[in-house]
């Protein structure tokens, strides 16, 4: 069992030092409960993206311990990484859709990698596309739809695994206000189904409108962690 009922994410004294001694994160201690929606804020270069990279094992911590559910991923082996990523939905600022696949195929790909049957794919993908409002654009390629629609397709792709944790790294960074609001609405809807959401953002309005827990990073340290907090930078 990957997830327990206590903490969804545990960062225990985590440090990340890049080559040439660049310190990205220092002594990070975090406990995020299942079903929470947490905003991580901070100026550029404060370690927000490094935090996400550690969660999806794109980077390994230099010190400390990271636990997702009851899986200690601190020293995760390379061959275990795909299995971790299949259990975490990730939404990126630059979408990261496969350009030579249609929207339907992009969403289906996340299921194909886990070996889902054709029947399951035919059932789940249209449902996910319907949730994000792209049911009628499933046959289009990423460059044939808007940025907001691409981001919704990414959310659909991250949802098909039914992850208990969804990590969104600046999901509204490339979107206008209306599309950004749509995406946040979608994330709240997903959160209402019980999925833990970790949102990394610069968008003050979004953080303030959420009225949820806000963790502020500065120079690789957690400088504030407030429940029902506001964007205070």
């Amino acid at each position: 069992m990957l997830y327990n009922e206590i903490d969804m994410i545990t960062f225990d004294g985590v440090e990340k030092v890049y080559p040439k001694g660049v310190i990205a994160l220092k002594n990070i201690n975090l406990h995020i409960k299942p079903g929470e929606i947490v905003s991580i804020v901070g100026q550029s270069g404060t370690g927000k993206t490094t935090l996400i990279k550690l969660l999806i094992a794109e980077e390994k911590p230099s010190a400390g311990r990271i636990v997702i559910g009851d899986w200690d991923i601190t020293n995760i082996r390379d061959k275990e990484v795909p299995y971790l990523r299949r259990q975490i939905g990730v939404v990126f600022q630059d979408f990261k859709l496969l350009p030579k696949k249609t929207i339907y195929e992009n969403v289906a790909f996340a299921l194909e990698v886990v070996g889902a049957s054709r029947g399951q794919i035919k059932k789940i993908v249209p449902q996910a596309l319907k949730i994000v409002g792209l049911a009628d654009k499933h046959y289009r390629y990423p460059n044939e739809i808007s940025g907001g629609e691409q981001q919704r397709a990414v959310i659909a792709r991250s949802l098909v695994h039914k992850p208990k944790l969804l990590v969104a790294d600046e999901p509204t960074g490339n979107l206008d206000a209306i599309n950004a609001a749509d995406i946040i609405h979608l994330l709240k809807k997903i959160n209402s189904f019980g999925t833990t959401i970790l949102l990394v953002t610069h968008n003050k309005d979004i953080v303030n409108s959420l009225k949820k827990r806000v963790i502020t990073l500065d120079a690789g340290h957690v400088v504030s962690d407030n429940h029902e907090g506001r964007y205070t930078l």
Partner: peptide, 15 residues
């Protein structure tokens, strides 16, 4: 870039 995306979605190296 596409190979990188596939990895981030959880595809194994063999896949």
């Amino acid at each position: 870039e596409e190979i990188g995306i596939m990895k981030l979605v959880g595809a194994t190296n063999g896949f």
